[in-house]
Design a protein around this nucleic acid. Structure first.
Lengths: 331, 331
DNA sequence: ACAAACATTTTTCACGTGTGCATTTTTATT
DNA sequence: AATAAAAATGCACACGTGAAAAATGTTTGT
């Protein structure tokens, strides 16, 4: 392996000069710099990142942490996040992927190992981790879950507003018997979406019927079961909002099984806009959650934070969008 | 930050002794070792991985490379791979995720940066990268795509055999007019699956009808279009095998659109067994591709290779499994 | 012409760790 | 008790890089 010392020998200068020349330090004369750069290129010099890391106390690594990799994280979520991040991240940073639930010792989460950390957070349980990162002074952006803490950079979708708009739309289509299949208990997103649902009903002076609030856990199966219980009610709803698309697909299956026609007999709205929402039968009307955009914006902010740790933390909201398809009928 | 020198000072020994004690070097007396370990624990010592990397020429990093992150890689694929790897990877290794198409300079792919590399390969185009890695002497396992090269550790599913079994099953249900929607041109998996399809037809003395070979590209839309063209034939097939589930879902949508009932009028078989295959209407009969198992086995082999670079390369096959659901009717 | 200011480069040191070899301490053997 | 052998520990250096301080060469000002 070629080192700056090798280049120095060839160029007839000290290794420090080489270092400066290659790092754009203005103390070096232009001709010297050009000559050294040329030699470095010819010799196929590639910097040793371990040595750089040691001396610079930088790792050239960004950590992406999900609440869990195994459980509760949908595939599209993970992929869209990675895509969004890669689209703005400099090539000589590498991105490592972790599940917070898989970490044995927070001790291993150190500034020397991560130049910055993105937490794609889904639950309050992540807070212990988040505050550890903050305490260690590692530049940090929390994505996807709204934090109350104004000291932490935070990028989220306005789930609540998005759901409200969707239910407003449903009401405008003539629906008044609106039910919800809620997300996983303890997840911030669950309460946010439920709030948006209620916001709309309240604005439209529609009653909040306790039987129309069915529990779910974001899993496909839970959507199936929740829908079964809603259909079993003496007076079933005319429309059901599912707190994510996976549950909407489960709910749709329950309708197939019971012979309920969508949207003829029952309308359905999802949340997330996963790839397959477009391809259910009928195509699912859902709220598009811009995971890639969130990740992109979050990464941009993280980079700012890494450049200048004193960048003021912000609470940023990315807009959701209602995707009107075929699962909601006018009554 | 605490260093071994700090510990050495407290323990009244040299930093060398500390280093040895903490690394299980047998040259150290048991009592000394115990004392040093205790002090290290009390002082909350955490080794500096940059320094370790520099001197050991190790990076404690495993790279996971997909052909592309943006295009052609389905979400479940990426997630299952990450899950499988995490399940066997030691905690003090970190996993970085990359798209081969996003790499500007192969020069950055060095032994000093990666202790080992897993390539989740989908196309021949990855070969340039694969051989670069091999040339650099980085322990390497290629997953998912069968390589001819016996010098490279390779873990793949037996797609061909899996498809053959599925078509055998279709034939046993009385089907004789079998069509295929092929995968993306240039992808090894496309030809493998097509081969399996033909293997079965040939064994059963069924004709290979050119019109029944429709082109696809693994995308949902291509499945839709291919199915439309098959349905437009004067004599449409009785069963269609789709080279992946995404296309099967697209094909299913084409049938909805044309009012063709599945499996009443047409049967359908997919490949991959993605999460949603279970929840289409009807539930999709498909071939389960054990991505997580492939990743797991591949990682195990990579670890072997990292421990002993002379480990003999193998070509390992992981079994697929036919998941019989409701999209194939008996005729 | 000589000092002062400036530009450029080199010298020396540090970062935290592991290792070959020398040195000291302990144990075993005679 | 003397000696050899073995066990335990320390010294000095290396890894590749960057930065402060020092040194050298060059220009400017009077």
């Amino acid at each position: 392996m070629i080192t700056i010392k090798d280049i120095a020998r060839v160029a007839g200068v000290s290794h420090t000069t080489v270092s400066r020349a290659l790092n754009g330090n203005p103390l070096i004369k232009k001709e010297t710099r050009d000559r050294i750069e040329k030699i470095a290129a010819e010799m196929n010099y590639i910097p040793n990142y371990s040595a750089k890391s040691l001396v610079m106390k930088k790792s050239y690594t960004i950590g992406l942490f999900f609440s869990s990799i195994d459980q509760g994280t949908s595939a599209s979520f993970l992929v869209d996040a990675i895509k969004g991040i890669h689209s703005v991240l400099d090539e000589n940073y590498s991105l490592t992927v972790h599940g917070i639930d898989g970490i044995q010792h927070f001790d291993a989460i150190l500034p020397q190992r991560f130049d910055g950390i993105l937490v794609m957070s889904q639950s309050d349980a992540d807070n212990a981790f988040i505050y550890h990162v903050k305490k260690m002074g590692i530049p940090l952006v929390v994505l996807n879950r709204h934090l109350e803490d104004p000291g932490i950079m935070n990028v989220v979708a306005n789930d609540r507003e998005g759901v409200k708009e969707a239910i407003d739309y449903a009401v405008s289509q003539g629906h008044s018997q609106c039910a919800i299949i809620e997300g996983k208990a303890g997840f911030k997103s669950s309460t946010e979406r439920k709030q948006g649902f209620m916001d709309s009903l309240i604005v439209h002076r529609l009653p909040l019927i306790p039987e129309y609030f069915a529990a779910g856990d974001y899993g496909v199966e839970s959507g199936y079961e929740a829908m079964c219980s809603l259909l079993a009610l003496p007076e079933p709803p005319s429309i059901v909002f599912c707190a994510n698309d996976d549950m909407a697909i489960g709910a749709m299956n329950a309708c197939y099984a019971k012979g309920i026609h969508i949207p003829g007999q029952l309308s359905l709205i999802g949340f997330d806009d996963i790839l397959f929402a477009r391809y259910t039968n009928p195509a699912l009307t859902t709220i598009h959650k811009p995971v890639a955009d969130i990740s992109k914006l979050g990464t941009t902010k993280l980079i700012d934070l890494m450049k200048d740790p004193d960048t003021a933390p912000e609470q940023l909201f990315v807009k959701t969008a209602l995707m009107v398809r075929q699962s909601v009928a006018a009554v």
